[in-house]
Amino acid sequence: MRILLSLLAGALFGGGLFVSGMTDTTKVQGWLDVFGNWDPTLAFVMGGAIIPMFIAWRLTPGRRPLVGGEFPSLPRPELDHRLITGSVLFGMGWGLAGLCPGPAVASITYNGMGGLIFMAAMLVGMGAAPAVGRGLDRMSAAA
């Protein structure tokens, strides 16, 4: 059951990224490029995605997930240097290539060699992240 629901969620996510045009880097960069030919599509994708998720969050209190267990424990609403620094680094890469992790996976079969190299670099970055994060913690503590 858990595996089937995972497959369904993944298929909906991948299908949504595909039909919304979010695997086209010009549409993502078009949204970020306020000084160029601005493209609002990403705002519609984000807005559309938030609607079912908003309803889903409303349904969680007092209930359990379908497969049992608990809903994820949510982080305390605190801002820390990791959240800010990490998001800035991510945004820099996102702007440069027009790809974030979801669309990078969804387009892996039709994004050519560039898509494969991006994926490889992203996986290396993810592997290095725990060490980089600890380095940032030390810098933050020293500052």
Binding site: I84, V88, M92, P101, F118, A120, A121, M122, A128, A129
Partner: peptide
């Protein structure tokens, strides 16, 4: 491509 991939990988995991 390589710089962007590294930044996205490191950044998303740290954040």
């Amino acid at each position: 491509i390589i710089a962007a991939g590294l930044l996205v990988g490191v950044g998303t995991r740290i954040a």
